[in-house]
Design a protein around this nucleic acid. Sequence first.
DNA 1: ATCAGATGTCCAATATAACGGACATAACGA
DNA 2: TCGTTATGTCCGTTATATTGGACATCTGAT
Lengths: 289, 289
Amino acid sequence: MQNRDAGKPVAKFLIVGQNSGKHGMKDEGRMDAVNDETISKRARGLDRAFEILEFLRVRREPAKPNEIAAQIGAPRSSVYELVNLLLRNGIVEYTGAEGRIYLGRKLYFLGAAYEDHFDFMRECDRVLDQLASETRETAQFCMLDGNKYAVVRMREGARPFRISSDVGRPVPIPWTASGRLLVGDMSDAEILDFIPAEDFRLPNGEWLPPEQFIAEVRGAVAAGEFTFNSIVDSFTHCFAVPVKAADGKVIATVCLVAPRDDGLKHRQSYLNSLKHAAAELTSKGGPDT
Amino acid sequence: MQNRDAGKPVAKFLIVGQNSGKHGMKDEGRMDAVNDETISKRARGLDRAFEILEFLRVRREPAKPNEIAAQIGAPRSSVYELVNLLLRNGIVEYTGAEGRIYLGRKLYFLGAAYEDHFDFMRECDRVLDQLASETRETAQFCMLDGNKYAVVRMREGARPFRISSDVGRPVPIPWTASGRLLVGDMSDAEILDFIPAEDFRLPNGEWLPPEQFIAEVRGAVAAGEFTFNSIVDSFTHCFAVPVKAADGKVIATVCLVAPRDDGLKHRQSYLNSLKHAAAELTSKGGPDT
DNA sequence: ATCAGATGTCCAATATAACGGACATAACGA
DNA sequence: TCGTTATGTCCGTTATATTGGACATCTGAT
């Protein structure tokens, strides 16, 4: 469906949230929204606000404040208050009918500024373009988003029926080929701690034993690639290779999503293209150091 | 410089923040950040947070928390606190060296979701593409952002030296051709109230008498177009025509930015293309009703 | 007509977020 | 060397933001 500007030129880079250990600012909390332990009574407005935005983002359609409150389990009065603040700031907007609201233009602008900042992303698009035209398959650039996998950038292939996915939609790591590479730098324990247990339950209901997943991770890292018939559907074959930062850490992946028969038929040539692409991105270095 | 995906396909629409009068939610505050009257002592965290994001956006490069505090005139301790919250949420990220921070990936995702939601934007890109290829000039889709003008979508022309502007950067309304159309629905008093007085000071230091501006507005609305040698530089000629919502209100403009000689030479044909483009967008209706 | 749920508004109580200012380093010139 | 500035941290005070709940409509179902 989607397909956000798999297009032409475009912006720049993307940093891993690696907090880089040293310079300043204590690393306190970590983790997503959830509190650490003692259930603190009142939630912070700012956190709630981003919960609302996140809710709208995954829902992908407008909602009424009342409904939002119910869905995210927040006090209605708080949500109304926050929604008003967000409206004032242009972060959310009234949409068409019925006081429903949705993500606002300001967010678009902020996102655009993010893109602009990173030269790497432009490079990334160039590489994806080339990949897609070489293989005629859908090419993607993927990263971790918290403890989920997400497509950051995508270029659809040149088929009559194109395969694509939502940019930015969080997907459980074990469901994806890239997932095998993106957690490659962690120890077994870290991986198990990092990935929510329920994410090993595949969309078809099957249970992927974490040990098996970890074994695949180790294999993928060693091989510098991972390919499989996707486990989220029945017709695609996925190819993923790592993109590494200067220090050798895996910061992203480049992927191809192909129909199964084509995937198997062109396996070697696809992998070659992919590795070439990843090498180009890797050499361009990571963050704007 | 920039040039965010003037590219191919892409997303959807864009709503005017028109608050549409009726349904629910009292319209309280209005306006940008600034308080209404009594200088309330403490600023709200959420507002401050977006002030920070906005600051980074216009600055267009990373900054240290300390510096941000100084620049936006906020207490340092507050800024440090907020920055930490934003970091936790992935809204801002550490960038390269020195605890500097910048807009984060999450914002990119939120912005992408905004785009996706609106079919109109896809249509818009199609129209801009066509405009740009017809005329070989830079084509833009512009709207108001609060009480400023902003380019929402852009397609660069096919010249060796291309003309472009930043997507989303706020520009004083009187500096732009589109500005003459975008405030066309307001009364004289409303216009003067809406546009900050200092925005009538042009970038070259000259003072544009508000009466003159208003006269131009009335003329532009009547003609359904506005063209002039840009007052922000010495080499461009700008063309703007309105895009209207179903109710006839001007919600946006489509523009061309051309070198002066070409602009004058092809004036009529450019205007024709532009009006055709605007008509297409207008007929596609506004918001996702 | 009646009822239950969904929706928006208002308000007082109190947990706490924003603030100012003190403190500790690091970086930098003179 | 020393003083000055830039930077990050910590903490007590207090203004206030968040919250629960009461209220008022509106809707649709029965």
